[in-house]
Amino acid sequence: MQTLRRLNLHPGWWLVLPFLLVVMGMFLGPILNILWLSVTLPEPGLDNYAALFESEPLRRMLWTTLRICLITTVMSVILGYSIAYAMMHASGANRNWMISLLLVTFWISVLVRTFSWLMLLGRNGPVNNALMGAGLVSEPVEFMRNELGVLIGMVHYMIPYAVLPILASMQNIDNRVIAASRNLGAGGAQTFWRIYLPLTRPGIVAGAILVFILSLGFFVTPAILGGGRVLMVAEYISVQVLITLRWGTAAMLAVLLLGGVLALMFILSRLIPLSQVFGGARR
C-alpha cells in the first residue's frame, strides 16, 4: 500500500485489476501471438501477405466477403430505416410493441435462426411452396448453397443492429426544424428528403458501419446457408486452422479482419458514443 500511495495510484484500480489481468492474459496476449504468427509461419517474412496478390482463391474469397457484406449493409440500413421511422411516428402502445419485437430478435440464438431459414428455404420448403402455389415461379428457386440464401439470413440477423443507431439519431432531431420546413411551404416528401434524411445521416453512417463490422466476421449463417459454396473470411479461417492446419494464412487473414474491424470501430466511436451502440444490444 505504501508504494501505491507513492505512485499516487487510485485504490479503485484494485477492483479493475482482476478483469484486466484476465483480458490481458487470456485474450490480448494470444491475439498478439496470432499477429506474430502471421509473419513467422511457416517461415519468417511477409510471404503470407504476398499470397494476397498471388493466390486466386484467396482473392476470390475476399471479394465474395466484401460483396456480401456491402449488399447486407445496404439492405439492412434501408429496411432498418423504415422500421426506425415507423417507430418514431407510432403512438405509445404501438411503439412499445415494436420495440419489444425488435429487442426479442437480439436475444434469439443465431443458430436457431439459421436452422429456421434452412427449413424455410429448402426446395420443398414453405417459401418455395408458396411461390409455386401463387404461380410466381414454375420450379423451386434455389435459395441455399448460394449467395441469395446467405444474404437473406444475414440481412435478417443484421437489421436490428441498423435500427438502434438510426433510431437514436431520429430522437435527436428537433421537431421545430421539421415544423419550420413545413411552414416555409415544403411538402411532406420535400421535407423528408431535404431536411429529415440529412439530419439522420450520422445514425445511418453509424448503423452501416456497425452492420458492416458484424458482417465481416460472420461465421454461422454463411457456413450453414452457403453450404460450403459461399466461402467468407471467417469460414476460410476456420478451415485453415481446423482442417488444413495452415496457421500462417489463417493468422494473416485474422490480422486483416481485425485491422479492418478496429479501424471501422474507431471511426464509429467518433460518430456516436459506443455505449449507445451496445446499449440495447447484446453482441
Binding site: 485474450f27 491475439i31 501471438n33 463490422i213 471467417a234
Partner: peptide, 26 residues
C-alpha cells in the same frame, strides 16, 4: 480509466472467429 474501459470492451468487438483462434492458441 476510460482508455482501460475501451480496452476491456474489446472481447465484444473482436470477431468471434478471432477470439476462437486466440483461446485455441492459449
Amino acid at each position: 480509466a476510460e482508455a482501460i474501459r475501451a480496452l476491456l470492451l474489446l472481447p465484444l468487438v473482436v470477431p468471434p472467429i478471432i477470439s476462437a483462434m486466440a483461446f485455441y492458441r492459449l
